[in-house]
Design a protein around this nucleic acid. Sequence first.
RNA 1: GGCCCGUUCGUCUAUCGGUUAGGACAUCUGGUUUUCAACCAGGCAAGAGGGGUUCGACUCCCCUACGGGCUGCCA
Length: 441
Amino acid sequence: MTVTTRFAPSPTGYIHVGNLRTALMNFLIARKAGGQFILRLDDTDQDRSKEEYAEGIKTDLDWLGLHWDRVEKQSLRMDRYREAADALRKAGRFYECFETPVELDLKRKKQLNMGRPPVYDRSSLALDEAERAAMRAEGREGYWRFLLNQSRIEWTDGILGPISIDAASVSDPVLIRADGQVLYTFASSVDDIDMGVTFIVRGADHVTNTATQIQIMEALGGTPPAFAHHSMLTGAEDEKLSKRFGTLSLRDLRARGVEPMALLSMMARLGSSKPVELAGSMEELIEGFDVGSFGAAPTKFDPEDLFPLTRHHVQGLPFAAVRERIAALGVSDDLAEAFWAVAKGNITVLADMADWWTLFRDGAEPLVDEGDREFVKQAVALLPPQPWSNATWAEWTAAVKEATGRKGKDLFRPLRRAITGRDAGPEMADVMPLLQKMPQV
RNA sequence: GGCCCGUUCGUCUAUCGGUUAGGACAUCUGGUUUUCAACCAGGCAAGAGGGGUUCGACUCCCCUACGGGCUGCCA
Protein backbone atom coordinates (compact mmCIF):
# COMPACT_ATOMS: atom_id res chain seq x y z
CA MET A 1 0.00 0.00 0.00
CA THR A 2 1.47 3.33 -0.96
CA VAL A 3 2.00 5.66 1.92
CA THR A 4 -0.46 8.51 1.66
CA THR A 5 -0.56 11.50 3.95
CA ARG A 6 -2.48 14.73 3.85
CA PHE A 7 -2.44 18.26 5.13
CA ALA A 8 -5.99 19.39 5.72
CA PRO A 9 -6.22 23.05 6.66
CA SER A 10 -9.52 24.83 6.63
CA PRO A 11 -9.19 27.98 4.57
CA THR A 12 -10.44 30.28 7.30
CA GLY A 13 -7.10 32.00 7.80
CA TYR A 14 -3.46 31.93 6.85
CA ILE A 15 -1.02 29.26 7.92
CA HIS A 16 1.03 29.77 11.05
CA VAL A 17 3.98 27.88 12.49
CA GLY A 18 1.74 25.39 14.26
CA ASN A 19 0.05 24.42 11.00
CA LEU A 20 3.33 24.31 9.22
CA ARG A 21 4.70 21.76 11.63
CA THR A 22 1.78 19.48 10.84
CA ALA A 23 2.04 20.07 7.11
CA LEU A 24 5.77 19.49 7.05
CA MET A 25 5.64 16.25 9.01
CA ASN A 26 3.03 14.80 6.68
CA PHE A 27 4.95 16.00 3.65
CA LEU A 28 8.22 14.51 4.84
CA ILE A 29 6.66 11.17 5.69
CA ALA A 30 5.12 10.89 2.23
CA ARG A 31 8.31 11.89 0.47
CA LYS A 32 10.52 9.65 2.51
CA ALA A 33 8.31 6.69 1.69
CA GLY A 34 7.97 7.67 -1.94
CA GLY A 35 4.26 8.07 -1.32
CA GLN A 36 1.60 10.68 -1.92
CA PHE A 37 0.99 13.97 -0.20
CA ILE A 38 -2.49 15.41 -0.50
CA LEU A 39 -3.47 18.99 0.13
CA ARG A 40 -7.05 18.88 1.27
CA LEU A 41 -8.97 22.04 1.84
CA ASP A 42 -11.48 21.43 4.61
CA ASP A 43 -13.93 24.05 3.48
CA THR A 44 -17.29 22.68 4.56
CA ASP A 45 -17.86 25.80 6.62
CA GLN A 46 -19.22 27.99 3.85
CA ASP A 47 -19.38 31.10 5.98
CA ARG A 48 -15.82 31.17 7.19
CA SER A 49 -13.99 29.58 4.29
CA LYS A 50 -12.62 32.01 1.76
CA GLU A 51 -10.93 31.54 -1.56
CA GLU A 52 -8.45 34.19 -0.56
CA TYR A 53 -7.23 32.02 2.30
CA ALA A 54 -7.10 28.91 0.14
CA GLU A 55 -4.85 30.79 -2.26
CA GLY A 56 -2.81 32.11 0.61
CA ILE A 57 -2.22 28.63 1.96
CA LYS A 58 -1.06 27.42 -1.44
CA THR A 59 1.26 30.38 -1.79
CA ASP A 60 2.79 29.72 1.60
CA LEU A 61 3.31 26.02 0.91
CA ASP A 62 4.85 26.85 -2.45
CA TRP A 63 7.18 29.30 -0.82
CA LEU A 64 8.43 26.53 1.41
CA GLY A 65 8.67 23.96 -1.35
CA LEU A 66 6.01 21.72 0.16
CA HIS A 67 4.52 20.62 -3.12
CA TRP A 68 1.45 18.44 -3.09
CA ASP A 69 0.57 15.61 -5.43
CA ARG A 70 -3.16 16.20 -5.29
CA VAL A 71 -5.61 18.86 -4.17
CA GLU A 72 -9.00 18.01 -2.79
CA LYS A 73 -11.83 20.25 -1.71
CA GLN A 74 -14.46 19.05 0.69
CA SER A 75 -16.98 21.48 -0.71
CA LEU A 76 -16.92 19.42 -3.93
CA ARG A 77 -17.73 16.19 -2.12
CA MET A 78 -21.06 16.94 -0.51
CA ASP A 79 -22.85 14.15 -2.37
CA ARG A 80 -20.38 11.65 -1.09
CA TYR A 81 -20.94 12.78 2.51
CA ARG A 82 -24.68 12.41 2.09
CA GLU A 83 -24.14 8.92 0.78
CA ALA A 84 -21.95 8.04 3.72
CA ALA A 85 -24.53 9.49 6.09
CA ASP A 86 -27.18 7.23 4.58
CA ALA A 87 -24.94 4.25 5.08
CA LEU A 88 -24.55 5.11 8.74
CA ARG A 89 -28.29 5.55 9.12
CA LYS A 90 -28.85 2.14 7.57
CA ALA A 91 -26.30 0.65 9.95
CA GLY A 92 -28.10 2.16 12.91
CA ARG A 93 -25.11 4.30 13.88
CA PHE A 94 -26.75 7.64 13.15
CA TYR A 95 -29.58 9.16 15.15
CA GLU A 96 -31.51 12.35 14.94
CA CYS A 97 -31.48 14.78 17.83
CA PHE A 98 -33.61 17.80 18.60
CA GLU A 99 -32.15 19.64 21.59
CA THR A 100 -31.30 23.23 20.90
CA PRO A 101 -27.81 24.55 21.67
CA VAL A 102 -29.27 26.34 24.66
CA GLU A 103 -30.80 23.16 26.00
CA LEU A 104 -27.56 21.26 25.52
CA ASP A 105 -25.64 23.95 27.29
CA LEU A 106 -28.05 23.76 30.20
CA LYS A 107 -27.67 20.00 30.39
CA ARG A 108 -23.92 20.29 30.48
CA LYS A 109 -24.04 22.79 33.29
CA LYS A 110 -26.39 20.60 35.26
CA GLN A 111 -24.14 17.58 34.84
CA LEU A 112 -21.12 19.58 35.89
CA ASN A 113 -22.92 20.84 38.97
CA MET A 114 -23.76 17.32 39.97
CA GLY A 115 -20.17 16.31 39.51
CA ARG A 116 -20.96 14.29 36.41
CA PRO A 117 -18.95 14.40 33.19
CA PRO A 118 -20.70 16.56 30.58
CA VAL A 119 -21.39 13.74 28.17
CA TYR A 120 -24.49 13.82 26.00
CA ASP A 121 -27.17 11.69 27.64
CA ARG A 122 -28.58 10.20 24.44
CA SER A 123 -32.11 11.23 25.31
CA SER A 124 -32.92 11.72 21.65
CA LEU A 125 -31.90 8.15 20.97
CA ALA A 126 -34.89 7.03 23.01
CA LEU A 127 -37.34 8.92 20.85
CA ASP A 128 -39.65 6.83 18.69
CA GLU A 129 -40.85 7.89 15.25
CA ALA A 130 -44.03 9.49 16.59
CA GLU A 131 -42.06 11.56 19.07
CA ARG A 132 -39.61 12.65 16.40
CA ALA A 133 -42.51 13.69 14.20
CA ALA A 134 -43.89 15.68 17.08
CA MET A 135 -40.56 17.43 17.51
CA ARG A 136 -40.50 18.39 13.86
CA ALA A 137 -44.10 19.54 14.07
CA GLU A 138 -42.98 21.81 16.88
CA GLY A 139 -40.68 23.41 14.36
CA ARG A 140 -37.51 21.83 15.67
CA GLU A 141 -34.85 20.93 13.16
CA GLY A 142 -33.10 17.64 13.63
CA TYR A 143 -29.34 17.22 13.63
CA TRP A 144 -27.43 13.96 13.55
CA ARG A 145 -25.17 12.23 16.01
CA PHE A 146 -23.00 9.19 15.58
CA LEU A 147 -23.76 6.38 18.02
CA LEU A 148 -20.49 5.40 19.63
CA ASN A 149 -19.87 1.86 20.73
CA GLN A 150 -19.18 2.24 24.39
CA SER A 151 -16.00 0.27 24.52
CA ARG A 152 -12.44 1.36 24.92
CA ILE A 153 -10.94 2.75 21.75
CA GLU A 154 -7.27 1.93 21.41
CA TRP A 155 -4.46 2.60 19.02
CA THR A 156 -0.71 2.78 19.07
CA ASP A 157 0.16 6.37 18.39
CA GLY A 158 3.28 7.07 16.38
CA ILE A 159 4.35 9.64 18.94
CA LEU A 160 2.32 9.11 22.10
CA GLY A 161 2.56 5.34 22.17
CA PRO A 162 -0.35 3.20 23.30
CA ILE A 163 -3.53 5.23 23.81
CA SER A 164 -6.76 3.99 25.27
CA ILE A 165 -9.86 6.14 25.57
CA ASP A 166 -13.16 5.06 27.05
CA ALA A 167 -15.87 5.94 24.53
CA ALA A 168 -18.29 6.35 27.41
CA SER A 169 -16.37 9.46 28.48
CA VAL A 170 -17.02 11.10 25.13
CA SER A 171 -20.27 12.49 23.75
CA ASP A 172 -21.70 10.97 20.61
CA PRO A 173 -20.33 13.43 18.08
CA VAL A 174 -22.65 15.59 16.03
CA LEU A 175 -21.79 14.94 12.40
CA ILE A 176 -24.46 16.86 10.55
CA ARG A 177 -25.93 20.09 11.77
CA ALA A 178 -29.56 21.09 11.67
CA ASP A 179 -28.81 23.36 8.72
CA GLY A 180 -27.31 20.43 6.86
CA GLN A 181 -23.70 21.41 7.21
CA VAL A 182 -21.40 18.40 7.33
CA LEU A 183 -19.02 18.72 10.22
CA TYR A 184 -15.29 18.27 10.16
CA THR A 185 -15.21 15.05 12.17
CA PHE A 186 -17.39 13.35 9.60
CA ALA A 187 -16.11 14.81 6.34
CA SER A 188 -12.57 14.16 7.43
CA SER A 189 -13.26 10.51 8.25
CA VAL A 190 -15.01 9.91 4.95
CA ASP A 191 -12.20 11.58 3.04
CA ASP A 192 -9.40 9.76 4.79
CA ILE A 193 -11.01 6.43 3.93
CA ASP A 194 -11.95 7.38 0.37
CA MET A 195 -8.62 8.96 -0.43
CA GLY A 196 -6.62 6.06 0.87
CA VAL A 197 -4.83 8.01 3.57
CA THR A 198 -2.56 5.64 5.44
CA PHE A 199 -0.94 7.88 8.00
CA ILE A 200 -2.25 10.95 9.76
CA VAL A 201 0.00 13.26 11.71
CA ARG A 202 -1.82 16.07 13.46
CA GLY A 203 -1.73 18.05 16.67
CA ALA A 204 -2.44 16.57 20.09
CA ASP A 205 -5.59 18.68 20.14
CA HIS A 206 -7.11 15.97 17.94
CA VAL A 207 -6.49 13.00 20.20
CA THR A 208 -10.10 12.70 21.32
CA ASN A 209 -11.28 13.24 17.74
CA THR A 210 -9.14 10.35 16.68
CA ALA A 211 -10.93 8.06 19.08
CA THR A 212 -14.34 8.87 17.65
CA GLN A 213 -13.10 8.98 14.08
CA ILE A 214 -11.69 5.49 14.38
CA GLN A 215 -15.19 4.25 15.15
CA ILE A 216 -16.70 6.31 12.36
CA MET A 217 -14.23 4.96 9.83
CA GLU A 218 -14.87 1.42 10.94
CA ALA A 219 -18.62 1.95 10.74
CA LEU A 220 -18.07 3.18 7.19
CA GLY A 221 -16.38 -0.08 6.40
CA GLY A 222 -12.93 1.44 6.18
CA THR A 223 -9.64 0.66 7.85
CA PRO A 224 -8.40 3.50 10.04
CA PRO A 225 -4.93 4.74 9.12
CA ALA A 226 -2.02 4.96 11.51
CA PHE A 227 -2.03 8.05 13.70
CA ALA A 228 0.62 10.21 15.31
CA HIS A 229 -0.18 13.24 17.43
CA HIS A 230 2.52 15.80 17.87
CA SER A 231 2.66 18.05 20.91
CA MET A 232 1.43 21.60 20.79
CA LEU A 233 3.78 24.52 20.47
CA THR A 234 3.93 27.07 23.26
CA GLY A 235 5.63 30.43 23.18
CA ALA A 236 9.05 31.13 24.61
CA GLU A 237 7.50 32.50 27.79
CA ASP A 238 5.15 29.55 28.06
CA GLU A 239 2.21 31.58 26.86
CA LYS A 240 -0.19 29.87 24.57
CA LEU A 241 0.94 30.23 21.03
CA SER A 242 -2.54 30.91 19.78
CA LYS A 243 -2.37 34.34 21.34
CA ARG A 244 0.51 35.14 19.07
CA PHE A 245 -0.66 33.56 15.88
CA GLY A 246 -0.89 36.98 14.34
CA THR A 247 2.82 37.49 14.56
CA LEU A 248 3.66 33.92 13.76
CA SER A 249 1.95 33.58 10.43
CA LEU A 250 4.23 32.37 7.69
CA ARG A 251 3.61 35.57 5.80
CA ASP A 252 4.90 37.50 8.72
CA LEU A 253 8.00 35.41 9.11
CA ARG A 254 8.65 35.71 5.41
CA ALA A 255 8.29 39.46 5.65
CA ARG A 256 10.85 39.49 8.42
CA GLY A 257 13.31 37.76 6.13
CA VAL A 258 13.20 34.24 7.52
CA GLU A 259 14.46 31.82 4.89
CA PRO A 260 12.36 28.78 3.98
CA MET A 261 15.17 26.36 4.68
CA ALA A 262 15.71 27.84 8.12
CA LEU A 263 12.04 27.52 8.97
CA LEU A 264 11.81 23.99 7.61
CA SER A 265 14.95 22.90 9.43
CA MET A 266 13.52 24.19 12.69
CA MET A 267 10.09 22.65 12.29
CA ALA A 268 11.34 19.28 11.15
CA ARG A 269 13.37 18.86 14.33
CA LEU A 270 12.06 21.04 17.16
CA GLY A 271 10.60 18.83 19.84
CA SER A 272 12.41 15.78 18.58
CA SER A 273 15.50 14.11 19.93
CA LYS A 274 17.43 15.09 16.85
CA PRO A 275 19.45 18.28 16.89
CA VAL A 276 18.01 21.35 15.18
CA GLU A 277 20.52 22.08 12.47
CA LEU A 278 20.35 23.83 9.14
CA ALA A 279 19.59 21.43 6.33
CA GLY A 280 21.22 22.06 3.01
CA SER A 281 18.31 20.80 0.97
CA MET A 282 14.85 19.33 1.11
CA GLU A 283 16.38 15.93 0.39
CA GLU A 284 18.48 16.19 3.51
CA LEU A 285 15.41 17.10 5.50
CA ILE A 286 13.48 14.14 4.12
CA GLU A 287 16.35 11.80 4.78
CA GLY A 288 16.80 12.91 8.38
CA PHE A 289 13.16 12.92 9.39
CA ASP A 290 11.76 10.50 11.91
CA VAL A 291 8.32 11.08 13.35
CA GLY A 292 9.04 8.63 16.13
CA SER A 293 11.79 10.85 17.48
CA PHE A 294 9.31 13.47 18.68
CA GLY A 295 8.40 13.77 22.33
CA ALA A 296 4.92 14.04 23.80
CA ALA A 297 5.55 17.07 26.01
CA PRO A 298 4.50 20.56 24.89
CA THR A 299 7.27 22.24 22.94
CA LYS A 300 8.53 25.75 23.46
CA PHE A 301 9.12 27.71 20.33
CA ASP A 302 10.89 31.05 20.11
CA PRO A 303 10.69 32.63 16.67
CA GLU A 304 13.96 34.43 17.37
CA ASP A 305 15.71 31.10 17.06
CA LEU A 306 14.92 31.22 13.35
CA PHE A 307 17.38 34.02 12.77
CA PRO A 308 20.63 32.24 13.57
CA LEU A 309 19.52 29.52 11.16
CA THR A 310 18.58 32.10 8.58
CA ARG A 311 21.97 33.78 8.90
CA HIS A 312 23.70 30.48 8.51
CA HIS A 313 21.69 29.74 5.38
CA VAL A 314 22.16 33.19 3.86
CA GLN A 315 25.91 33.07 4.37
CA GLY A 316 26.11 29.91 2.37
CA LEU A 317 24.20 31.19 -0.65
CA PRO A 318 26.07 31.31 -3.94
CA PHE A 319 26.14 34.56 -5.87
CA ALA A 320 23.77 33.20 -8.52
CA ALA A 321 21.06 32.84 -5.91
CA VAL A 322 21.11 36.52 -5.05
CA ARG A 323 22.16 38.10 -8.33
CA GLU A 324 18.77 39.62 -9.05
CA ARG A 325 18.26 40.89 -5.57
CA ILE A 326 21.60 42.63 -5.65
CA ALA A 327 20.89 44.15 -9.04
CA ALA A 328 17.64 45.47 -7.61
CA LEU A 329 19.61 47.39 -5.01
CA GLY A 330 21.28 49.30 -7.81
CA VAL A 331 24.66 47.60 -7.57
CA SER A 332 26.37 47.59 -10.95
CA ASP A 333 27.18 44.24 -12.55
CA ASP A 334 30.93 44.65 -12.26
CA LEU A 335 30.70 45.15 -8.51
CA ALA A 336 27.87 42.73 -7.74
CA GLU A 337 29.87 39.59 -7.09
CA ALA A 338 32.44 41.38 -4.97
CA PHE A 339 29.65 43.07 -3.07
CA TRP A 340 28.02 39.76 -2.27
CA ALA A 341 31.31 38.28 -1.10
CA VAL A 342 31.62 41.16 1.35
CA ALA A 343 27.99 41.44 2.38
CA LYS A 344 27.11 37.81 2.99
CA GLY A 345 29.25 37.41 6.04
CA ASN A 346 27.76 40.44 7.68
CA ILE A 347 24.03 40.06 7.37
CA THR A 348 21.31 38.00 8.97
CA VAL A 349 18.52 38.39 6.45
CA LEU A 350 19.00 39.29 2.81
CA ALA A 351 17.31 42.63 3.32
CA ASP A 352 20.27 43.64 5.46
CA MET A 353 22.31 43.94 2.28
CA ALA A 354 20.63 47.24 1.57
CA ASP A 355 22.35 48.91 4.51
CA TRP A 356 25.76 47.83 3.34
CA TRP A 357 25.15 49.01 -0.17
CA THR A 358 23.92 52.36 1.07
CA LEU A 359 27.08 52.63 3.10
CA PHE A 360 29.35 51.77 0.17
CA ARG A 361 27.48 54.05 -2.23
CA ASP A 362 27.01 57.11 -0.07
CA GLY A 363 29.77 56.74 2.47
CA ALA A 364 29.27 56.43 6.20
CA GLU A 365 29.01 58.90 9.01
CA PRO A 366 32.58 58.50 10.28
CA LEU A 367 33.25 57.45 13.83
CA VAL A 368 36.34 59.24 15.07
CA ASP A 369 37.54 59.45 18.64
CA GLU A 370 38.87 62.81 19.74
CA GLY A 371 42.35 61.36 20.16
CA ASP A 372 42.35 59.96 16.64
CA ARG A 373 41.17 63.08 14.82
CA GLU A 374 44.55 64.25 13.60
CA PHE A 375 45.65 60.75 12.78
CA VAL A 376 42.58 60.07 10.64
CA LYS A 377 42.97 63.37 8.76
CA GLN A 378 46.55 62.58 8.04
CA ALA A 379 45.64 59.09 6.88
CA VAL A 380 42.87 60.21 4.57
CA ALA A 381 45.24 62.66 2.96
CA LEU A 382 47.44 59.70 2.06
CA LEU A 383 44.62 57.84 0.28
CA PRO A 384 45.40 57.29 -3.37
CA PRO A 385 42.83 58.51 -5.87
CA GLN A 386 40.03 56.14 -6.85
CA PRO A 387 39.40 53.61 -8.26
CA TRP A 388 40.63 51.31 -5.53
CA SER A 389 41.55 47.68 -5.71
CA ASN A 390 41.92 44.86 -3.24
CA ALA A 391 45.51 45.91 -2.79
CA THR A 392 44.61 49.48 -1.86
CA TRP A 393 44.01 48.75 1.81
CA ALA A 394 47.38 47.09 2.31
CA GLU A 395 49.25 49.76 0.39
CA TRP A 396 47.46 52.59 2.10
CA THR A 397 47.79 51.25 5.64
CA ALA A 398 51.47 50.59 5.00
CA ALA A 399 51.90 54.19 3.95
CA VAL A 400 49.96 55.44 6.95
CA LYS A 401 52.02 53.25 9.24
CA GLU A 402 55.16 54.68 7.72
CA ALA A 403 53.96 58.24 8.13
CA THR A 404 52.49 58.02 11.60
CA GLY A 405 54.30 55.17 13.26
CA ARG A 406 51.02 53.59 14.34
CA LYS A 407 50.57 49.86 14.03
CA GLY A 408 48.26 46.95 14.84
CA LYS A 409 44.93 47.70 16.39
CA ASP A 410 45.74 51.42 16.84
CA LEU A 411 46.34 51.67 13.13
CA PHE A 412 43.49 49.60 11.68
CA ARG A 413 40.65 50.25 14.06
CA PRO A 414 40.38 54.03 13.72
CA LEU A 415 40.55 53.71 9.94
CA ARG A 416 37.76 51.14 9.86
CA ARG A 417 35.65 53.33 12.09
CA ALA A 418 36.29 56.40 10.02
CA ILE A 419 35.45 54.72 6.74
CA THR A 420 32.55 52.46 7.67
CA GLY A 421 31.25 54.19 10.76
CA ARG A 422 31.21 50.82 12.49
CA ASP A 423 33.37 48.76 14.80
CA ALA A 424 32.70 45.56 12.99
CA GLY A 425 32.26 44.51 9.42
CA PRO A 426 33.82 42.82 6.46
CA GLU A 427 37.47 42.64 5.49
CA MET A 428 38.61 46.17 4.74
CA ALA A 429 40.72 44.98 1.82
CA ASP A 430 37.52 43.81 0.17
CA VAL A 431 35.58 46.90 1.19
CA MET A 432 37.88 49.41 -0.47
CA PRO A 433 37.07 48.51 -4.08
CA LEU A 434 33.37 48.86 -3.32
CA LEU A 435 33.51 52.35 -1.89
CA GLN A 436 32.03 54.89 -4.26
CA LYS A 437 33.10 58.03 -2.42
CA MET A 438 36.08 59.39 -0.58
CA PRO A 439 35.52 59.34 3.17
CA GLN A 440 34.51 62.77 4.47
CA VAL A 441 36.46 63.59 7.58
C1' G B 1 -15.63 18.25 37.49
C1' G B 2 -14.42 14.05 33.69
C1' C B 3 -11.07 11.95 30.01
C1' C B 4 -6.10 11.83 27.55
C1' C B 5 -0.94 13.21 27.55
C1' G B 6 3.19 15.13 29.88
C1' U B 7 7.32 16.93 33.81
C1' U B 8 15.78 15.43 32.88
C1' C B 9 20.89 21.41 31.93
C1' G B 10 18.19 28.29 29.94
C1' U B 11 15.94 25.45 25.39
C1' C B 12 15.02 20.66 22.43
C1' U B 13 16.18 16.09 24.21
C1' A B 14 19.22 10.76 25.15
C1' U B 15 19.03 7.08 28.92
C1' C B 16 14.44 0.84 27.28
C1' G B 17 17.12 -0.68 36.75
C1' G B 18 23.66 -0.29 37.78
C1' U B 19 26.37 5.73 33.37
C1' U B 20 31.56 10.55 36.01
C1' A B 21 23.26 11.28 33.56
C1' G B 22 25.15 11.95 27.03
C1' G B 23 24.27 15.27 22.75
C1' A B 24 22.54 19.66 20.16
C1' C B 25 21.25 24.94 20.47
C1' A B 26 22.04 29.13 23.64
C1' U B 27 25.71 31.10 26.96
C1' C B 28 30.74 31.92 28.99
C1' U B 29 36.28 31.41 28.47
C1' G B 30 40.57 30.67 25.51
C1' G B 31 42.84 30.19 20.43
C1' U B 32 42.73 32.38 15.52
C1' U B 33 41.19 37.32 13.23
C1' U B 34 42.53 44.68 12.35
C1' U B 35 36.97 43.88 13.86
C1' C B 36 32.49 40.87 13.43
C1' A B 37 31.12 36.21 11.69
C1' A B 38 33.00 31.44 10.82
C1' C B 39 36.21 27.81 12.74
C1' C B 40 38.98 25.08 16.80
C1' A B 41 39.48 23.91 22.12
C1' G B 42 37.38 24.10 26.79
C1' G B 43 33.82 25.55 30.84
C1' C B 44 28.99 26.35 33.38
C1' A B 45 24.47 23.78 33.65
C1' A B 46 19.42 18.95 34.81
C1' G B 47 16.08 14.09 36.82
C1' A B 48 8.98 18.57 40.24
C1' G B 49 7.80 16.57 45.47
C1' G B 50 6.50 12.34 48.50
C1' G B 51 5.80 7.23 49.13
C1' G B 52 6.62 2.29 47.56
C1' U B 53 9.00 -2.28 44.63
C1' U B 54 14.37 -3.57 44.37
C1' C B 55 20.85 -5.33 46.50
C1' G B 56 20.33 -0.92 43.43
C1' A B 57 15.24 3.78 40.58
C1' C B 58 15.92 9.37 36.13
C1' U B 59 14.13 4.61 34.51
C1' C B 60 8.74 0.32 37.26
C1' C B 61 4.07 1.31 40.57
C1' C B 62 1.00 4.79 43.59
C1' C B 63 -0.15 9.70 45.46
C1' U B 64 0.51 15.03 45.22
C1' A B 65 1.88 19.38 42.62
C1' C B 66 2.45 21.70 38.14
C1' G B 67 1.94 22.06 32.56
C1' G B 68 -0.72 20.91 27.95
C1' G B 69 -4.98 19.05 25.24
C1' C B 70 -10.09 17.68 24.86
C1' U B 71 -14.83 17.97 27.14
C1' G B 72 -19.11 22.74 20.54
C1' C B 73 -24.97 21.96 15.97
C1' C B 74 -15.71 24.88 15.56
C1' A B 75 -11.59 22.83 13.18
